[in-house]
Design a protein around this nucleic acid. Structure first.
Lengths: 168, 168
DNA sequence: ACTATATAATACGATATCGAATTAGATGAG
DNA sequence: CTCATCTAATTCGATATCGTATTATATAGT
């Protein structure tokens, strides 16, 4: 059936700090990401993918923009991937890059008026679909999920930085 | 900072069933998936990616195996992506494909002894890393997250099937 | 049994992802 | 000031992802 649990934990030893629960959480997060990405892309013009729209959405609430490195860090993707996503958004004129006055190597990426408009249209088209989909959720699910997910994300992120430092 | 909230909701209208919270949850799920995938791949031999290991891990608790379509459905990825992942695992002799006695078009994919051994080694190498990383989590975070994530995943999945049917 | 339709898997092509190497500009030590 | 080092971004090459079209087999209607 479609409601199976991939990689589910068969049992849980008492001492070991449930690695298996952790794995199950990781797998579920990845499936949720997969499903929501597909859902979003079904309302996106062909040629635009979730990674690109995510950046656009992020920039829409930060009119001052940010550097590519800041954006890569916000989404925790490699900076070469961000270069690629930004190039695609720039080709579509949805964002624009200005020289960074503080650092000649860098640049500042900002959303354009066309980008903001586009983002608004997609959000609007998406609203009823998402609302309908999520209407089947137990009330409060998202509000309970969000802080927990954020907490996990922050801890994972901190550990990643820590590991990176250890390799100095 | 590295603890920003990409695509965060600026405010929340009372009537509209917080599309913005939903977006934030989706984004966080995607970042968690990204971070855990990177973490896993840091302990995987080069040439193996998270998608492949996920399938291997899934099969390790299902000795009878499954069809490619069942596996694609378990992870909610397109079946052509699963074909690719399975081909990679087969090349490495970590899984094997047998003809499906019930259906000549299909086949049954099973983990091999080498695959089970390999999976065990990776899990063992990963255990201390994950344990250390997650030691910074508030206790109970994962146990509270798992049922909520599953619930969300199941609802998203059901909606997806529903949409697919509408297009018949 | 025969044809139409449906389904499992794959082949193919376009694009996305990402690690390693590169380029250009910044920063710090002397 | 100059050189060494560091850092932001990009280029390049390898691989992954996934939509469309294709192939092979199954199933249903007559």
């Amino acid at each position: 059936m479609t409601t199976e649990n991939p990689g589910a934990a068969p049992a849980k030893a008492s001492g070991d700090v449930d690695l298996l629960t952790a794995f199950a959480v990781f797998t579920e997060a990845s499936i949720v990401a997969q499903l929501t990405s597909t859902l979003l892309e079904s309302r996106l013009p062909k040629g635009m993918v979730t990674a690109q729209f995510g950046v656009l959405n992020h920039l829409s609430s930060r009119p001052a923009g940010g550097t590519p490195l800041q954006l890569a860090s916000a989404f925790q993707v490699p900076k070469t991937s961000m270069t690629h996503s930004l190039a695609a958004l720039e080709r579509k004129r949805l964002v624009e890059a200005l020289p960074n006055p503080d650092d000649g190597r860098s640049k500042i990426v900002r959303i354009t008026p066309a980008g903001a408009r586009f983002r608004g249209e997609v959000i609007e088209a998406l609203a009823p679909v998402v609302a309908h989909t999520l209407s089947a959720l137990d009330p409060g699910t998202l509000d309970r999920l969000l802080p927990l997910l954020r907490h996990l994300r922050i801890v994972l992120d901190a550990a990643r930085n820590c590991r990176a430092e250890r390799l100095e």
